[in-house]
């Protein structure tokens, strides 16, 4: 399981100070999220695509991620046009698809893709642990940072555990079907994972106690703001402000 596939690389964005990344992307996402209409979101999508182009990350992998996001959005395309009031475009039986409905779901699609692309391009190009460090430096509460970091540290361990259990099922000729036996087996699998995760968390906590843990992590490496970071920070803030002024106010 590889969670950091976009973090490998050596573009300007890979070297960018993660603190600056957080400070600039949060307002950017916020502005996109509260935009109305389709013009603003379209511009945001173009800007996000430009940022992606600069990171030189694999387009194939990127499309893989976008398919996941857009699968959910596809469902909106089925339902929203029929449930939004406005001028009818066409009818299916008693159902009416409206012009406004289509524009609304288009706006959502553009916004979601703009946000996902920007997040992958800006945050995805840093390793998770440097993002966690950045959060510490930005004075995010310790508990939240620990939660974020431990989730990342142990998700792959949990995934390996899941694969072992799945293999154990496979070598005894288990095949998933639509029946009680399959549901029960998967329930056992999930239950087993929960128990094992709980046990592991207890062991990790004990190991931390043995090394004198008192609730605080000390950060060893510190970031240094470079000129590129400042330039990017200012540029991104300018873009966000202009977008906000044009499409929200």
């Amino acid at each position: 399981m590889h969670l950091e596939e976009f973090a490998e690389g050596n573009s300007f964005f890979h070297r960018l100070d993660p603190r600056v990344k957080f400070i600039t992307i949060m307002p950017y996402i916020f502005v996109i999220a509260i935009m109305q209409g389709t013009k603003g979101p379209l511009l945001a999508l173009i800007i996000s695509l430009l940022i992606v182009a600069f990171t030189r990350i694999s387009v194939k992998k990127l499309i893989g991620r976008l398919i996941v996001v857009n699968t959910f959005i596809f469902i909106l395309w089925i339902f929203l046009p029929f449930s939004y009031p406005g001028d009818a475009v066409f009818h299916i039986g008693p159902l009416e698809a409206t012009h406004e409905g289509f524009l609304y779901v288009l706006s959502i699609t553009l916004k979601a893709n703009a946000i996902v692309l920007a997040t992958i391009a800006i945050l995805g190009t840093s390793e998770v642990f440097s993002l966690a460090h950045a959060l510490v430096h930005l004075k995010v509460p310790d508990k939240l940072v620990h939660l974020f970091f431990f989730f990342y540290r142990y998700i792959s361990v949990l995934h390996e555990e899941y694969e072992r259990l799945e293999n154990a099922m496979a070598i005894r000729a288990f095949k998933a079907k639509t029946n009680m036996h399959t549901y029960r087996t998967y329930a056992y699998l999930v239950g087993m994972l929960i128990i094992r995760s709980y046990d592991r968390s207890q062991r990790i906590y004990k190991a931390m106690l043995c090394r004198g843990f008192k609730g605080k992590f000390r950060v060893m490496s510190h970031f240094e703001l470079k000129r590129g970071d400042v330039v990017f920070g200012l540029l991104m803030t300018l873009i966000t402000s202009v977008m906000g002024l044009l499409f929200i106010l």
Binding site: F129, A207, M208, M220
Partner: peptide, 14 residues
């Protein structure tokens, strides 16, 4: 104390 499973003991990024 060295634990049986090293993944229990190593939890920091680097």
């Amino acid at each position: 104390l060295l634990f049986q499973d090293s993944d229990d003991q190593l939890f920091c990024p680097t």
